[in-house]
């Protein structure tokens, strides 16, 4: 088994996630794409952990899963708030940062 098998899979998933983040307008879909990105990273961590026979990879993957849970919680709360204020979750409409 090659290390690259897993790394390529992770890279492809990562890029698909990036594509999703960049093209989706719906806030929930953006969050899903971010989950995809995080999963790609996790594959990398676990693969390197297995490659180096080091438990740290798996441990950090677990930490990232926990962080992802927190991120989804807060992210969804924000999306709900946007929806409540604007009756829409189109992230491209949220442009209050405009300079």
């Amino acid at each position: 088994m090659f290390l690259n098998q897993f790394l390529f899979l992770a890279a492809i998933l990562f890029c698909i996630g990036v594509y999703g983040v960049l093209t989706r307008k719906n806030g929930v879909l953006v969050l899903m794409s971010i989950e995809l990105i995080l999963n790609a990273v996790n594959i990398n961590l676990v693969a390197f952990g297995s490659f180096n026979q080091d438990i740290a990879g798996q441990v950090f993957a677990l930490f990232i899963i926990a962080v992802a849970a927190a991120e989804v919680g807060v992210g969804l709360a924000i999306v709900l708030l946007i929806y409540r204020n604007r009756r829409s979750i189109d992230v491209s409409e949220a442009d209050l940062l405009q300079g």
Binding site: G27, V28, L31, M32, L76, V79, L80, Y83
Partner: peptide, 8 residues
């Protein structure tokens, strides 16, 4: 996420 979809 499904809840998010539903609530929005």
């Amino acid at each position: 996420l499904l809840f998010g979809v539903m609530l929005t």
